[in-house]
Design a protein around this nucleic acid. Structure first.
Lengths: 330, 330
DNA sequence: ATGAAAGCGCTAACAA
DNA sequence: TTGTTAGCGCTTTCAT
């Protein structure tokens, strides 16, 4: 009836009638039934998010998507993937598609998720990965970010830089590793293979990794951790080895998750533009929902160096191996 | 038609017909439309969760609810409250009620949330607060937990114990504070009011609070932080003051969030039985959905002391002020 | 044991 | 500009 048009701001209703209808609707405390809207082929004005809520980075991203959505008058519902969840995403998408107009997928650690996503009949945008998937992908330029990190350390005078790698299943981790190796070669830094250790993007992995670096015959003077949580773990291991950050060892992370700024010393890191990412994801998705072709197959956002307290010049006695300086005590 | 009965395991279908229907359904890749189920007055087998995803504790609880739900063949959808969200919960519940069979609310920092929740026409269970709300509440015995913490410290020999309080708007924080004061009096511990400092359940608040404690003319030999995140912040402040945990200062937290075990030294803490809590919440909710009256208006779960590395006996020279011992150097 | 009819709240396509 | 009709996928209730 006319009421539907009025409530949905659609043309073809006289101003008086519209005002009257809205008044009555308000009096009645009318709330649109989104499920019914969707069932009858319309739009529910709800977007779905599929995410693994295990990391701070993901939670913050979800929060950002929520705000961005709300700003566009869209509600958000989250489907939380459990860590051990190996079920195919098909049924989940089926469930969501009954309610939401489109889905933003923050890719989980387990890859191969994309394959089954591809034949969904719902607008989808992915965040943080999915190189060869048939829908738009929002990501930070991880390669460029890692370059910034190494350049920062090199500019401070570090030549022997350790690297705590991330989860190899993730493209983001691979890009950061690639940049590390490239920059190391390019800048002529110490290429000792022992300086590269495995991590898993989590605190504990960072701790173990840094422990190994600290036990090296000649430990690095700086460490680049592939994400902030690893860096926080690394910080504990460095302290445990009776060294201090940044006096003895400089430490830089990646993400700029909120803890980075609350840890002590505050962590120097590469900021992923979370707000921009969530906004870009929402905008792209809404465009697709409106039938507009996605603006770009891949949106690459620029990371940024946030210099805080955990990086400094290396200790003087290690500054260089130039003859004549070696052995200086201070 | 008969198909509905067959799919829903309802009586009144011959075994052959049922088998045939299920086979065909499977062939067709049939997936029930939950929205339609709900629209027509049935059950969607989806539960909703309203939560603020800002703290690790909340995220872990949500994950737990998801598993518990899945175990009972229920899916879960999360509505994420943004931190600055002051909108009344009414519309959110309206939205959710179109999709889910019941809602678990993890109460956000802003209180007064309950009032508007009360006239919902949907089964609701709250976690962690809501003393005088008209629905079941699941919570840990915070008072008892805080008692365990103080008793642990006292048993190690501490007499001068600092307390980093939590967000006063939360009943859980108030209960823990109350227990601290009661136990202090009961055990005859040092009652210096300067030993109690404000916190906000977050890392940064804990850091600031511990800083104040460390600057006291006579700092405490042990600190009880009202939650783990505060404790992690406090640990940084203690270190910054050139003291070490637990040699100089013992530290105990509350929650047993996953980082507690990954921090170094690993944090002694009071464990909230997260799995039990989420299971209890889900079970209670499912019972209500089935029309069974909730088993209890309030389910109180028992916390548990998890002794790790951050607590120890106080330094010998501070052990007591008994004449004749004072001034001992070791 | 099976099926037919009606309706949940909406929107699309059409008629007036 | 307004209203009517049909149908989205289900679960009732009431026949058969």
């Amino acid at each position: 009836m006319t009421a539907s048009r009025a409530v949905n701001n659609q043309p073809g209703v006289s101003d008086e009638k519209r005002a009257e209808i809205l008044r009555i609707a308000d009096d009645l405390g009318y709330v649109a039934n989104r499920a019914a809207q969707r069932l009858s082929g319309g739009r529910s004005h709800v977007i779905g998010v599929i995410a693994q809520l295990h990391t701070l980075f993901t939670s913050e991203l979800v929060l950002g998507i929520g705000s961005a959505g709300r700003a566009a008058n869209y509600e958000m519902l989250v489907y939380s993937l459990s860590d051990a969840d190996n079920r195919p995403p098909g049924p989940i998408l089926d469930l969501l598609s009954q309610i939401v107009d489109g889905v933003i997928v923050i890719l989980p650690f387990q890859s191969d998720y994309l394959a089954s996503l591809s034949n969904a009949k719902l607008p989808i945008v992915t965040i943080d990965e999915g190189n060869d998937a048939p829908f738009p992908k929002i990501m930070t330029d991880n390669y460029q970010g890692a370059r910034l990190a190494i350049e920062h350390l090199a500019a401070l005078g570090h030549r022997r830089i350790g690297f705590i790698a991330g989860n190899e299943g993730l493209a983001s981790a691979r890009d950061r590793a690639r940049a590390f190796h490239d920059m190391r070669a390019q800048l002529g830094l110490d290429a000792d293979p022992e300086l590269v250790v495995h991590g898993n993007f989590m605190q504990q992995g960072g701790f173990l990794a840094a422990q190994r670096l600290m036990r090296l015959a000649e430990p690095p003077t700086a460490i680049f951790a592939a994400n902030d949580m690893s860096a926080v773990g690394a910080m504990a291991a460095i302290r445990e080895s009776k060294r201090s950050v940044p006096q003895d060892i400089s430490l830089i992370g990646f993400d700029d998750v909120s803890v980075a700024n609350h840890v002590h010393p505050a962590l120097t890191t590469i900021r992923q533009p979370l707000t921009q990412m969530s906004r870009a994801a929402v905008n792209t998705l809404l465009a697709m929902i409106s039938g507009i072709a996605p603006p770009a197959e891949r949106i690459l956002l620029s990371p940024e160096l946030v210099a805080r307290e955990s990086t400094a010049a290396p200790p003087l006695e290690k500054l260089s191996q130039k003859p004549g300086r070696k052995g200086m005590t201070r």
